[in-house]
């Protein structure tokens, strides 16, 4: 080898062969295949085909178990001191760009929201450059946001696939409260915002705790963060329940329901992931005594993720609930 060595450079750890990738692949493919056949059975007939869902569940099980073992392995390597500073930095970069990709996923849905609200919707209502003649098709359709009446309903189309809300939903700003209570403080999104914003603070305090080497503080605040995450999710479930049961606002109620549930739903799913991640970090610290004041990337990565979820919520609050 002609390459010369440069003294003082830390050796790099190339891991041994690993079976993880193959197992994760098997899990992923089974779950996806099961899901695809299952959904198709639901939509195109043969609704009682439990085999598909069994395949999916087995796949998910394999997948989750593999990820669990995989992460455990990575953590053990780190604790055994096998990770160089360089490798740790690779993990940091990996997490950062992963979050960036997640962000871009949301961009697609926000883009859809902006496009529909500012361009397509008004055009359907016959306004603006793009919509001069659409009145011919959707006579009587008035664009408003939330779209409480879809174009199809406006023209009373036959065989409508769109099931509208039952008319009691007026807007996210006024309606998203428990049906019995109408006071401002019953407005769920406000509470969710407060909860999520404060959880960003608590997770930061937890971080300060671990930086100070104060494990009690770390546990206390991290535990509080997880709790806030759980409360957020419970409130969101309540909100969805209200929407479906009392307002007739569903996935089927036109584009408003579509954007509303997809945006808040994917966000909620990310909150669930974040809560789980933080919960695992809490357990790791409490049970296994993991993390030191200068090595706690597992926690830090989860907290970044949490902050990201928080930022997405701020946009949601603004564009879905307020404006």
């Amino acid at each position: 080898m002609t390459a010369q060595s440069s003294p003082g450079h830390e050796p790099y750890y190339v891991p041994e062969q690993s079976k993880m990738a193959v197992f994760a692949t098997i899990g992923l493919v089974l779950s996806v295949f099961g899901a695809a056949t299952g959904i198709n059975d639901l939509t195109f007939g043969e609704p009682d085909q439990p085999a598909s869902w069994t395949v999916m569940n087995i796949g998910l099980l394999v997948f989750i178990a593999t990820l669990f073992i995989w992460f455990r392995m990575a953590i053990r390597e780190n604790i055994a001191g096998m990770n160089s500073a360089q490798l740790k930095k690779s993990y940091v970069l990996g997490m950062f760009w992963f979050i960036f990709s997640e962000f871009m996923f949301f961009v697609a849905f926000f883009g859809a929201l902006f496009y529909v609200r500012n361009l397509a919707g008004p055009w359907l209502g016959g306004e603006g450059d793009g919509g001069r003649m659409n009145g011919l098709l959707w006579e009587g359709f008035q664009f408003s946001w939330p779209m409480t009446q879809t174009p199809q309903e406006a023209v009373g189309g036959a065989g409508s696939q769109v099931i509208a809300n039952n008319g009691s939903f007026t807007s996210a700003r006024t309606s998203m409260a428990f049906a019995e209570a109408s006071a401002w403080y019953a407005w769920l999104p406000l509470w969710n915002t407060i909860i999520l914003l404060s959880s960003s603070v608590t997770v930061h305090i937890a971080h300060m705790g671990i930086l100070d080497g104060d494990r009690r503080k770390f546990h206390k605040w991290l535990g509080l963060t997880v709790l806030l995450g759980v409360i957020f999710l419970s409130l969101q479930i309540a909100e969805y329940y209200e929407a479906y049961a009392h307002f007739g606002l569903t996935l089927n109620s036109g584009i408003y329901g579509s954007t509303f549930f997809m945006l808040t739903g994917f966000h909620g799913f990310h909150v669930l992931m974040g809560t789980t991640m933080l919960g695992i970090q809490l357990l790791r610290s409490m049970r296994g005594g993991h993390f030191t004041s200068d090595d706690h990337f597992g926690f830090e990565a989860s907290s970044w993720y949490w902050h990201f979820v928080d930022v997405v919520w701020v946009f949601l609050f603004l564009f879905v609930y307020i404006l």
Partner: peptide, 27 residues
């Protein structure tokens, strides 16, 4: 991820009744 978002919307339109790409529902 944007492509993933696009096919996810398709999935929802096909199987779960959303209206992203259907003018009748406001998409």
């Amino acid at each position: 991820p944007v492509l993933a978002g696009a096919v996810t919307m398709m999935l929802m339109d096909i199987h779960f009744g959303t209206s992203f790409f259907s003018a009748a529902g406001g998409g």
